[in-house]
């Protein structure tokens, strides 16, 4: 026993090093749970507060840019409302109140920390459970899609950005509805990959890619980006397509979190099919 003690004392530097590394790896392992979803804890409330304070100071510097983005979005929305359309036909359709039902609710939030430089990027929002945000909700910016909520604490939430190795988002080409999947292969934060588009589909650079609406979280038709380049290796059944994201992940500030009001119902139906 004494000898063991002497031995440990002699090489304590090495054993302490080992102990600390083990602690660090336990921390890492705890954080790598299923689907990369993380549970925010009290410590995240603390760091959230620090980022919030920092943001309160630096918010003013981006006001001009944010105003511009909001004005552009307003213009786009104005163009979509009824008054902007001219009626060419008199065959009016009777619209029953119950025909349309609100399916998606938008919650606005501000990004208080963000990264684009890692292989797996996350951001933090200044709203959480108390403000109605739940796991797996879709996050979009005025310019396009941003990511998926991956962790929620009382007042903050963390978002798995589109710049993440595990993100897969169902997408389609706007012009012919051919559907594929969006993924990120690392590197440039402005570029993503569109996979699973079969080789018989006709595509061109500049084609618009939007969300397909097949997932339970994203509404149909949200802008993702445009095709930057594509190639078809001989013998392959699918294109290799690179897209330019319409969202500039480095300049994100304000985003919307989308709540699907029918999600529970859709989920139940889906589960009953699997049984």
């Amino acid at each position: 026993m004494r000898q063991l003690f002497v031995f440990l004392l002699k090489y304590y530097f090495f054993f302490l090093f080992l102990l600390l590394e083990i602690i660090a790896f336990i921390l890492i392992a705890n954080n790598f749970n299923y689907q990369g979803a993380r549970v925010l804890n009290t410590a995240n409330e603390l760091t959230g507060k620090t980022y919030q304070t920092y943001n309160n100071i630096f918010d003013y510097f981006n006001l001009k840019e944010n105003n511009k983005i909001l004005a552009e979005e307003n213009a786009r929305l104005h163009a979509m409302i009824e008054q902007s359309y001219v009626k060419f036909s008199n065959n009016e359709i009777f619209v029953n109140d119950t025909t349309y039902k609100l399916q998606y609710k938008y919650i606005d939030a501000k990004i208080i920390s963000n990264s684009t430089g890692k292989r797996n990027n996350y951001m933090m929002l200044n709203k959480g459970f108390n403000q109605g945000i739940r796991n797996n909700m879709a996050v979009v910016s005025p310019n396009g899609i941003v990511g998926i909520v991956s962790g929620v604490s009382a007042n903050f939430s963390s978002v798995m950005s589109l710049l993440h190795s595990e993100i897969k988002i169902s997408a389609k080409l706007k012009k012919n509805n051919a559907s594929g999947t969006i993924a990120w292969e690392g590197g440039d934060y402005k570029r993503g990959a569109l996979i699973d588009i079969p080789s018989h589909i006709k595509i061109r650079t500049g084609d618009t890619v939007i969300t397909s609406g097949f997932s339970l979280d994203f509404p149909e038709g949200i802008m993702i980006g445009t095709i930057a380049n594509y190639k078809l290796n001989p013998g392959d059944n699918f294109f290799k397509i690179k897209i330019n994201y319409s969202t500039d992940f480095n300049k994100l500030d304000y985003v919307y979190v989308i709540k699907n009001l029918f999600k529970d119902e859709q989920l139940k139906l889906k589960e009953s099919q699997h049984e």
Partner: peptide, 17 residues
């Protein structure tokens, strides 16, 4: 640094190393 960057344990492991 880990606490703030959501990289629990990674910076700690690298720094100790």
């Amino acid at each position: 640094v880990d606490l703030y960057t959501d990289t629990m344990g990674m910076h700690a492991a690298a720094s100790v190393f």
